[in-house]
């Protein structure tokens, strides 16, 4: 079971990295999501899939064949955080698209290299747009 999950995680990670190398910003952001999920699967796999039953302990009864709850807890945390960051990245992407008209990564790099606007402190988008 582990090796299937491990290979899947590997393929997904390769896919994610390949997408991140794309010129199109949308694919870069999606690539991060794919890579994030590959890593989530990887973390889960690293904790082994031994055990079939939930690790609930009632009284002094020992649970035999319990699944390891720790990797599950880790991955659950990571999924929640990853989702929030992905949504934020999409929001920034949407705004970038509105400003640039297209989503070429070179355009983004070029925009950060623009000379600093004068009176930098006063540069602020009007309310309700950002």
């Amino acid at each position: 079971m582990e090796w299937i999950a491990a290979i899947t995680a590997g393929i997904m990670a390769a896919l994610g990295v390949w997408m991140m190398l794309d010129r199109h910003l949308m694919r870069v952001v999606l690539g991060i999501a794919v890579l994030g999920n590959a890593i989530n699967l990887g973390v889960l796999t690293a904790g082994r899939f031994a055990g079939e039953r939930a690790a609930f302990v009632f009284g002094n009864e020992a649970v035999t064949d319990a699944a390891n709850p720790l990797p599950q807890a880790l991955v659950l945390t990571a999924i929640v955080i990853g989702f929030a960051l992905f949504v934020f990245a999409l929001a920034v992407l949407k705004r970038t698209h509105e400003l640039h008209g297209d989503k070429d990564t070179d355009k983004v790099s070029a925009a950060t290299e623009q000379p600093a606007p004068d009176h930098n402190e006063d540069h602020h988008e009007p309310e309700g747009r950002a």
Partner: peptide
Amino acid sequence: GGGERRLAGAMTYLV
């Protein structure tokens, strides 16, 4: 604060 230059920097930083 937004703006083209700032969001582009934010995108680089974020990714």
